[in-house]
Amino acid sequence: MGSFFLKNTHIAIIGDIKDSRKIANRSEVQSRLKMVLDGINHGYDDDIASKFIITLGDEFQGLLCEGSNTMKIISEIEMKMHPIRLRFGVGIGEITTEIDKEMSLGADGPGYHKAREAISYLKENERKKSTYSADIKFETESGNDVPIRLVNTILVLMTVIKDSWSDRQWEIIGDMFGHQDTQADAAKRLGIRQPAVQKSLASGKYYAYCDALDAIGEALEGIRRRDG
């Protein structure tokens, strides 16, 4: 997949909260979002070119220089913010301005343009309600549409899986995703029996979801830090 990416490629991520004006406790949600993003900045420091920050109250952005953990980062934000629904526009392309590790606001270039294009598409598609849409969309400046179409098709299928999860499944799956250990360990943390964890994961197609997530990560491995 290396030839898919242009020189000096980064991954720009723009996210926002769905239906934020309908949320009664917006200040609490924004505080929670800031805490989640701070955790991402700390936990994925090696992947981040410019830290995730809240930019417009209900919108946030960050810049990655390593591609393989892109979906893990997005999924972690999603799961820690549940039941708040988010959407993500992801742009793969060059950044033409100087990159500040501490402040992604002000950075510009085709990567961010494509991220904005992607999130605008999601908003418009939701408004029209014309087709089933994912919560995440990728766009690239490379001109090679086939790989990105495959990624976006996988994302639609992943959204279908997520939309089937109950609140309890979100809790169990979020625990498994966050700790990456065994069903028995998850059961102990959640105060339930291991068969209940297994049943919830199976009905929620958890392992298929993880396989899809890993497949996207492998597709993005061509984006790596270029020091020097």
Rank of each mutant, 00 (worst) to 15 (best):
K7S: 09
I14C: 01
R21N: 11
S27E: 11
E28A: 11
V29Q: 03
Q30E: 15
K34Q: 15
N41A: 08
G43H: 08
D45N: 09
K51N: 13
I53L: 05
T55R: 01
E59W: 02
F60D: 13
L63R: 09
L64D: 07
C65K: 06
T70K: 00
M71L: 15
I74H: 11
S75L: 11
P83W: 11
F88A: 01
F88L: 02
F88K: 01
F88G: 01
F88Y: 04
G91A: 06
G93R: 11
T97F: 08
I99L: 00
S104G: 05
D108F: 06
H113A: 08
E117I: 04
A118F: 07
A118T: 01
A118G: 05
E126M: 03
R127Q: 12
T131D: 15
I136L: 11
I136N: 07
K137C: 06
E139K: 08
T140N: 05
T140M: 09
N144G: 03
I148Q: 13
V151C: 03
N152K: 05
V156I: 14
L157D: 02
K162D: 06
K162R: 10
S164N: 06
D167P: 00
D167K: 10
R168W: 07
W170V: 01
I172Q: 14
I172L: 15
I173F: 05
T182K: 14
A187R: 08
I192N: 07
R193M: 04
Q194R: 05
Q198N: 04
K199N: 09
G204P: 07
Y206H: 04
D214W: 08
E218G: 07
E218L: 12
L220Y: 05
G222H: 04
I223T: 07
R224Y: 00
D227C: 13
